[in-house]
Structure formats: C-alpha cells, structure tokens
C-alpha cells in the first residue's frame, strides 16, 4: 500500500467516498458521463486516508470510463494520454484537471470494445516498459561517455 506524506495531502482527514463521488459525477459538471447506471469502485481495498483511484462508468458498457486519480497531475496524465493514443483499441482519450487546487486528474478512455480499465492498465504497462528502456539506454550512454572521457584523460597524461 502506498502511504503519502501528510503534508502533501490537502487534508489529513479521511475523505468521505460518497461526497467525493457526488462531486465528480454531478452531471452538469461532468457532461461526458451519461445518465445511466454509475458504478463506483473504490479500487483500493484498505486505505484510510484517500481514495487513490476511482473508476466511473456503467455496468452495461465497460468500454467507456473516466478514471479519477488523486495526487497526480500532467506528469502522469499527459504521458498516459500519449500511450493510450498509441493503442489502436482506443477511440478516444483525454484528461482534465477539474480544479488546479485539487490534486486530481480525470482520465477519460473510450475503446472499441475492450474494458477501459484493461486498456488503461496496458497503457501503464507500456509506459513502464518505455521508462525501463529509457533508463537502461541512458545508463549505457552515460557509462560509455565516462569510459571515453577516462580514455581521453589518460591520453593527455602520456
């Protein structure tokens, strides 16, 4: 389980899941969610302080959902939008930060039929793989550069 520094949370009080949900799902504020049945899955089992991620969608059609992630911003959401857009199963995706003083992003995913949560998970997986590759390539490049530098320094001493 991930425990966040309390100083980063806006409030250290336990958040009421229903009130949070009501705020996000209010139709006038959130026109992308149609009036159908809304499910609310608090995806974290035991977490006293904050709901870290929520999925808003309907039972009938799981191919379109909005994911609400707390304590995230453009850093993750924009990267995820990129990897989601690269996935041919995605028909639409986008993200928004409802209010700048709320540490929260909403990521909207609509797919050609697969469950949106699965597609989002795959996008995260893709992003992780890309990061790992970036890291290994970078480490290699730095090691090469350092070796070349060391060789150069030795030549000077000769």
């Amino acid at each position: 389980m991930i425990i966040y520094r309390s100083s980063l949370c806006q409030s250290s009080k336990p958040r009421n899941s229903l009130s949070v949900a009501a705020r996000i799902l209010h139709p006038s504020k959130h026109p992308t969610i149609q009036g159908g049945i809304l499910i609310l899955t608090t995806l974290v089992g035991v977490c006293n302080y904050s709901l870290l991620a929520m999925e808003h969608g309907s039972f009938q059609d799981q191919s379109a959902s909005t994911f609400s992630l707390t304590d995230e911003d453009h850093t993750l959401a924009n990267s995820l939008r990129f990897t989601l857009n690269q996935d041919p199963r995605v028909t639409f995706c986008g993200y928004s930060i409802p209010h700048p003083s709320d540490a929260r992003v909403n990521i909207r995913v609509q797919t050609t039929g697969d469950p949106a949560s699965e597609v989002l998970k795959d996008a995260c997986q893709d992003l992780m793989l890309m990061c790992q590759h970036v890291r290994s390539t970078f480490d290699e490049a730095v090691a090469d550069f350092k070796n070349a530098q060391a060789l150069k320094d030795m030549d000077i001493k000769h």
Partner: peptide, 20 residues
C-alpha cells in the same frame, strides 16, 4: 535523471495496482 525515470515507473505501477 535515472531517479526521475524510476518515479514515473512507480506512478504507473501505482495505477496498475490500484486498477486491479
């Protein structure tokens, strides 16, 4: 830089664990 890339990986992992 490598630490920064690791943090992005952690963020992804966090989302994956919370979605499953």
């Amino acid at each position: 830089f490598t630490e920064a890339v690791k943090i992005l990986e952690d963020k992804c992992e966090r989302v994956i664990t919370e979605l499953s």
